[in-house]
Amino acid sequence: MQTHEILQNAAQTIAITSKDLSVTADDLSTLANQLSSDLAQVCQNGEKVLEDIKKTTDILRFVSDIAANSNLLGLNAAIEAARAGEHGRGFAVVAEEIRKMAVNSGKSVENIATILKTIQHETSKVVSVLVKTTELGNTQASSTGRISASIHQLAEIAANIQKVADSV
């Protein structure tokens, strides 16, 4: 009788613990899958940012060309203003301001390009870490799924032991 009671208590404890573990493992598996999915999405977003940065390089090249051409136009305008003598003095001031704006625009383009290269480099590092983390998340999700399946199997065994204990 005492053996029967010990067997029945052990079977109930195993059954309850297995059910708790099963629920927890299922929750972990769900969370691991969600984490893996979210990391993959963040990785895709990072890659999109890198693509957009590459597109801005073309735009910066265009603005740089405009700045260089504006500088030449300002220089030519200054030459023509000098030829005009006293009548071209006002135009010479405008030409000089155009040249200053062109030089400042060119420097700004260079600064922006430097900043974008830094952003691109740092974003590449982030994406690289995200790729590795996504792989880890996938591995974790897979492992958690296997643990969950094992715990479900353990719960079935515990239920069978409970049936045997009840019948004894």
Rank of each mutant, 00 (worst) to 15 (best):
Q41P: 01
V103D: 05
I53V: 14
R99N: 08
E156G: 02
T133Y: 02
E86M: 03
H152A: 12
K54A: 08
S167E: 07
K125A: 00
D20R: 11
L60P: 02
S128A: 04
N104K: 15
T118P: 10
K163W: 04
L31H: 11
G106R: 07
H121F: 09
H121K: 14
T139N: 04
V42E: 01
K132V: 00
V94F: 06
N138E: 12
K163I: 09
L28P: 03
S167I: 06
V63D: 03
G145C: 03
A81M: 08
G46L: 00
I66R: 03
V164Q: 13
L31A: 15
I147R: 01
S37R: 05
E86S: 13
T139S: 11
E122W: 04
E51D: 09
N76A: 14
V93S: 11
Q8V: 06
T30I: 13
N45W: 04
A158R: 00
S143G: 15
N111P: 02
L28C: 11
Q34S: 11
S142D: 00
V63G: 00
H152N: 05
A68F: 03
I59W: 10
S36I: 02
L72E: 13
Q2I: 09
N45Q: 03
N111D: 13
A92K: 14
A84W: 05
A78S: 06
I151S: 08
V42D: 09
Q162L: 13
N69S: 10
D166A: 12
T114A: 15
E122C: 10
S108Y: 00
K117L: 15
A25K: 05
A82D: 11
L31T: 13
F91T: 04
A159L: 06
L75Q: 02
E47I: 00
A155E: 12
S150T: 05
Q140I: 09
G106W: 05
G74L: 09
S64M: 08
D58Q: 07
T144A: 13
L39E: 00
I157P: 00
M1Q: 01
M1I: 15
L130N: 09
S64K: 09
D26G: 12
E135P: 10
A40H: 04
I151T: 08
A141T: 08
Q12N: 04
L35T: 09
A84G: 08
K19E: 09
L31E: 11
Q44D: 02
E51K: 03
L7W: 09
S105K: 15
T133L: 15
T17A: 07
L72Y: 06
G90V: 02
A95G: 14
K132C: 00
F91Q: 08
G88T: 06
A40K: 04
S37K: 04
E97L: 13
A25M: 03
R83E: 15
Q153R: 13
I14E: 14
L28Q: 13
A95F: 10
Q34M: 07
V109K: 07
Q140Y: 12
S36E: 03
R89T: 12
A102E: 01
T17Q: 07
I147D: 03
N71A: 12
H152G: 04
S124K: 14
V127P: 01
I14A: 06
Q2C: 13
A68I: 14
H4L: 14
E80W: 01
G137S: 06
M101A: 15
A11L: 03
D166C: 08
